[in-house]
Design a protein around this nucleic acid. Structure first.
Length: 821
RNA sequence: GCCCCGAUAGCCCAAUGGCAGAGGCAGACGACUUAAAAUCGUCACAGUAUGGGUUCGAGUCCCAUUCGGGGCACCA
């Protein structure tokens, strides 16, 4: 009696069974299996799951289930990145409680994930907005504070006028707010920072250890972001100023070519330098500074923008040749990079040359590169050449000249070798409600006082009665019951810090919290960390290539230095899945090309959607939903399912007596399937499963028939393999084959290599690289025999004709190529 | 402007330097059916973006060009 395939029926049958059996519990006490930690980037709970989640979790699940199938105890947890602006914006817009909104969405996503058959360990779950979680954000903040890695400073920070909050450098993309695309402006504020720059060298150098394990693209992006440059700090004496001005340069070998100095117009240094200037200069300066501040970063970053600047009537002395050079201010020098001041070497730096030509300043070439004089060509020469007009450096090549120049300034006590980074410290304060309160109390007498550890967590006050709308200061400041406290040090009146932490703090260490998600004793249990961490396989979108991954790496290194973990890198391997597009562009409601995941699941079933995600192409490529066919996936699954249904032999039948050619197909499949999955070629793995399905169909219908043990063997391996992609169908197949759940815990059969040995192969015979004949030969044929066979072939003789033989290449048993003269 | 990745059949994609096709979609035909759907089966279709080079042999390695995608771009 044959049943019809119904994905709905199958889903309904197995979901409750799995809920009961908990096949993915990674905390069984006497589990002897070796461990693997597979982690998907946790979602932000903004509504239900979408197609992007469906792809990411389908792929992460293939990996997780694969390792279980290979006999590992796999920890595959999930949680929610639950703090952040959308909850607050929803609250403002619709008058909801951010907390309630967040937990409702989490409940919905959780139910969807269960239905989607994600192999998550549902006993390891976390939500960053739970006090039990963010308490440890605060604890970590205080640990950082103790070590001088968390500090407060006043500076010009990125300000999003729409979100009404500050942004980290990393959250400003091309001058726009990453979140809302508003144009970002600058604002002077006192804010909290994490000292990432202290770890810059390690964050950069340790990327080498991830080579080949992380996508090259991500490594490049991280390197670009940190962007270390080596050079020297050099002091320039300023006329009429007590202290010299230090400049950073990567080209100290060009010091003799420095013909002027430029100070960032928006730096404190510039403001100080014009204090004693004439009224005229001061007025011009103020105008220039104002117009600079008004220009947003986009205008400022336009590379073809003409240079602007102002001579401020002051002079510096070139420390090597004693030249008196003018000091200018300009916006092409950045206030917060290096010292905010540069020595300008127009002959050998294009930016300086552009400035010099615009301002009619002298250009002095100090490298003989054989190219045209930059002053005439307008093109700065950067490359190789010997130093000229440079006193003691004359005749030296670049590297030697740099070394020598540093030696000289060190000798004269005018500078030293130095490094600089594009990476800035991480600004973590946010003027918003829905985040982790910063555990610091401000006391008039005692200043900054950390909240004592036994008073953690500092819980968020209820949002009821608070005005959450953005107004540039934290809504928490208005919660007077909450904000006014006694100083822990002197018991005098004091106020809590009312800012909350950037949510990237939450995600910088969540992968460790999964080790002991409910602990009230530790942020994470170090013994569990020894067992599981670091993460063996991390899966997520490339959108987090810089921000999240850099911060998580930073946290890991700090935790390492705190002695809490014994590794330096959090994620041993990283897989970036692509995006799901529709008709070539990202799905969005406004574009009208949104494909709803729930519709797809209703129409095709969970398995078909998951399989479609895996089969669409290499995981890192984008999937255009218009190019793939979930209906085809569904058709294939039904086909595979019918194979299991057709099998007509007992569970304990001796497979070794089965049909040889079918067994061979099965074991060839096993060999190629494992290889495909290990190399993340999931699409190829699925294709192999299709191939096996086709072979089994043929065997059942027109070959050895459904009773042959080899058909059972093939069907069993097919069910196990499919469980990575289509857990429901696979479980049903497994059941039809006479087994108890769960197929997920069944291990693939060992490949029986003796079945793979070919007795005969088809040998290719070429003449001058062109196929001329084929012979079926023994797999063990010798080179001589093959050569003999080819040379006596009529077709080969004809192809050679009367040409003379030049060379005969034999690759027994597969190929022979006869080259003629 | 600089750097990286890619380009294989109408489409999505495979192919340790060795017969260009594993798999799928769409297509044609056949079997089953009163018919259709479903199912099962058979078949066709490109010489690998372009131009050079290395090699006995190149989709694969090297160089250049075109197109597409991504990253960086006043960081001294």
């Amino acid at each position: 009696m044959h049943k019809e395939y119904s994905f709905q029926e199958i889903q309904d049958r197995w979901l409750p069974v799995w809920d009961q059996l908990k096949p993915f519990d990674s905390s069984k006490p006497s589990d002897e299996r070796p461990t693997k930690y597979v982690l998907d980037m946790f979602p932000y709970p903004s509504g239900d799951l979408h197609m992007g989640h469906a792809e990411a979790y389908a792929l992460g699940d293939v990996i997780s289930r694969y390792w279980i199938q290979r006999g590992y105890n796999v920890m595959h947890p999930i949680g929610w990145d639950a703090f952040g602006l959308p909850a607050e914006n929803a609250a403002i817009k619709r008058g909801l409680d951010p907390r309630a909104w967040t937990y409702e969405n989490i409940a919905q996503q959780k139910a969807s994930m269960r239905r989607y058959a994600c192999s998550f360990d549902w006993d390891r779950v976390l939500q960053t907005c739970d006090p039990i979680y963010y308490r440890w954000n605060q604890w970590l903040f205080l640990e950082f504070y103790k070590r001088g890695l968390a500090y407060r400073k006043n500076s010009n920070v990125n300000w999003c006028p729409s979100c009404q909050t500050v942004l980290a450098n990393e959250q400003v993309v091309g001058g726009l707010c990453e979140r809302c695309d508003s144009s970002v402006t600058k604002k002077a504020l006192t804010q909290w920072y994490f000292k990432v720059t202290e770890y810059a060298d390690r964050l950069l150098d340790d990327l080498d250890t991830l080579e080949g394990k992380w996508p090259a693209k991500v490594l490049t992006m991280q390197r670009n972001w940190i962007n270390r440059s080596q050079g020297a700090n050099v002091d320039f004496v300023i006329e009429g100023r007590k202290d010299p001005i230090t400049v950073f340069t990567t080209r100290p070998d060009t010091l003799f070519g420095a013909t002027f100095m430029v100070v960032a117009v928006d730096s404190d240094l510039a403001s100080e330098l014009i204090v004693d200037a004439s009224t005229e200069v001061r007025m011009s300066f103020v105008d220039y500074l104002e117009s600079t501040k008004k220009a947003n970063d986009i205008e400022r970053l336009a590379t073809d923008r003409p240079k602007t600047g102002l001579f401020i009537d002051r002079y510096a002395i070139n420390p090597l040749n004693g030249d008196r050079i003018p000091v200018w201010v300009s916006d092409y020098v950045l206030a917060d990079y290096g010292t905010g001041a540069i020595m300008a070497v127009p002959a050998h730096d294009q930016r300086d040359l552009d400035f010099a030509l615009a301002m009619n300043l002298p250009v002095k070439s100090v490298i003989d590169s054989g190219e045209e004089d930059p002053a005439i060509s307008g093109v700065a020469t950067l490359g190789a050449g010997k130093a000229v007009n440079s006193g003691p450096l004359n005749g030296l090549a670049k590297e030697d000249a740099i070394a020598k120049a540093i030696e000289i300034v060190v000798e004269k006590n005018l500078g030293s070798a130095a490094k600089n980074y594009r990476l800035r410290d991480w600004l973590i304060s946010r003027q918003r409600y829905w985040g982790t309160p910063i555990p610091i109390i401000h006391c008039e007498k005692c200043g900054e006082v950390p909240v004592p550890a036994d008073q953690l967590p500092v819980e968020l006050p209820d949002s009821a009665g608070l005005d959450l709308s953005p107004k540039g200061t934290s809504p928490l400041g208005a919660a007077s019951d909450w904000v006014n406290v006694a100083c822990p040090a002197c018991s005098g009146p004091a106020r809590r810090d009312s800012d909350t932490m950037d949510t990237f703090v939450d995600s910088s260490w969540y992968f460790l919290r999964f080790l002991s998600p409910n602990s009230t004793e530790f942020a994470f249990d170090p013994a569990e960390a020894k067992k599981w961490a670091p993460v063996d396989q991390y899966v997520g979108g490339v959108t987090h290539a810089i921000l999240h991954l850099l911060y998580a790496r930073f946290f890991t290194k700090v935790l390492h230095d705190m002695g809490m973990v014994d590794f330096q890198e959090p994620f041993t391997r990283l897989l970036n899945q692509g995006m799901v597009l529709m008709n070539g562009s990202a799905m969005s409601k406004s574009r009208g090309n949104l494909v709803r995941l729930s519709d797809q699941l209703d129409e095709h079933g969970v398995d078909a959607i998951r399989l479609t995600m895996a089969f669409a192409g290499p995981p890192e490529d984008d999937i255009d939903w218009a190019d793939v066919s979930p209906a085809a996936s569904s058709k294939f699954l039904a086909r595979a399912w019918r194979i299991a249904q057709d099998v007509d032999s007992a569970v304990d039948v001796d497979v070794s007596s089965g049909d040889k050619s079918v067994r061979k197909a099965t074991h060839q499949f096993l060999a190629s399937f494992t290889e495909s999955i290990e190399n993340f070629k999931f699409n190829v793995g699925v294709a192999k499963a299709m191939e096996l399905t086709n072979a089994l169909r043929k065997a059942i219908d027109t070959g050895c028939g459904p009773k042959d043990p080899a058909v059972r063997e093939g069907a069993e391996e097919l069910a196990k393999a499919l469980s990575l992609f289509a857990p429901y169908v696979a479980e049903d197949m497994w059941s039809m084959l006479g087994y108890e759940p769960c197929v997920a815990n069944a291990q693939l059969r060992e490949v029986q290599t003796d079945l793979l040995v070919e007795d005969t192969v088809i040998a290719i015979a070429q003449v001058d690289g062109k196929l001329r004949d084929k012979f079926e030969v023994s797999a063990s044929i010798t080179e001589d025999e093959l050569r003999e066979m080819a040379l006596s072939s009529e077709a080969i003789k004809r192809a050679i004709g009367d040409k003379e033989l030049a060379n005969v290449i034999v690759r027994a048993p597969k190929l022979i190529n006869i080259a003629t003269k």
